[in-house]
Simulated assay, not measured.
Amino acid sequence: MDWIQATLLALLQGITEFLPISSSAHLILLPVVAEWEDQGLAFDVAVHVGSLAAVVAYFRRELAAMSRDWLASVVQRRTVGESRLAWAVLWGTVPVGLAGLIFKGFIEGELRGPLVIATTTVVFGLALWWADSRVRGKRDEHTLRWRDVLIVGLAQAIALIPGTSRSGITMTAGLLVGLSREAAARFSFLLAIPVIILAGGLKGVDLVTAARPVDWSVIAVGTAMSAASAYLCITAFLAVIQRIGMLPFVIYRLVLGAVLFALFAG
């Protein structure tokens, strides 16, 4: 990889990981459109580590309270402070973890094509628009019921299909169960932490077994650029989403889907 490729891919990962527009779709499609060779497992792991560092840094106070209260709830066998939200994040991760283990091979072998990405980009973009326009929830993430957690968790499992957008579909589900836009986004971002750890861990195992040489300078740049852009993206998104809504991202997805169909349908 050259420095331009590494920089653009890292920025793309950081920006799109937490926006409802699908980071996996962009990371798969940019090399195809630009006629680049695949960036490789090491770089994929690096940019995901950068995204993880960003979301942990942004929610560091909440995560500290959630971890402390979760441990207390295990010991005391009752709800303690932020333990309910911590359990919601953990249980909301179970469906995607199981689905990833069961369907990983099929998804990577059969569902990474441009037309699949184009279709899911449009379909789940319209689902996001429908949820945002029909529901005006006011609840925050601390009021989630277990049924709500199950719905959002199952939605997150669907996001294993490239182009769906993990952030997009979990925000859609959050809106449908009555969360406000900001609360749906915050819960989606918290759910990203165990998912990125799981995905990065699987890729890390593949990387170790592949035993290929690694350009550590490119890896360092990719990690740093991904972390910085992801942190800025989270900050900006949460600052404006309650006011602007999801429509700009829906329009972007529809345009992107149309472009993909135009490029690859023939």
Rank of each mutant, 00 (worst) to 15 (best):
D215G: 01
L41G: 10
A192P: 05
Q242E: 14
I193Y: 10
E37M: 00
T7W: 04
D2G: 15
P213H: 08
A224K: 05
A118H: 14
L8Y: 03
P114Y: 12
V33Y: 05
A183D: 11
G222R: 09
Q13V: 10
T79E: 15
Q13H: 12
Q76L: 14
L260I: 14
A131W: 04
G97L: 14
I151H: 03
T164H: 12
G200L: 14
A227G: 01
R84I: 11
T235C: 00
Q13W: 06
L30V: 14
S188I: 02
D148K: 07
G92C: 02
G125Q: 07
L98A: 15
W70Q: 01
S73G: 13
T209F: 06
Q156D: 08
V195T: 13
A10V: 03
T121V: 14
R166K: 08
P20C: 04
A25C: 12
W130T: 12
A64F: 06
W146T: 13
G266T: 11
L260C: 10
I15Q: 01
S226K: 08
S226I: 08
L12G: 11
R147Y: 09
G14M: 06
G81D: 12
C233D: 00
V55G: 00
T170N: 04
F237S: 00
M171V: 12
L263S: 11
V205F: 09
I244M: 01
F237L: 07
D215N: 13
P114S: 12
L247R: 04
L144H: 06
A192G: 07
G125S: 07
A53P: 03
A99Q: 11
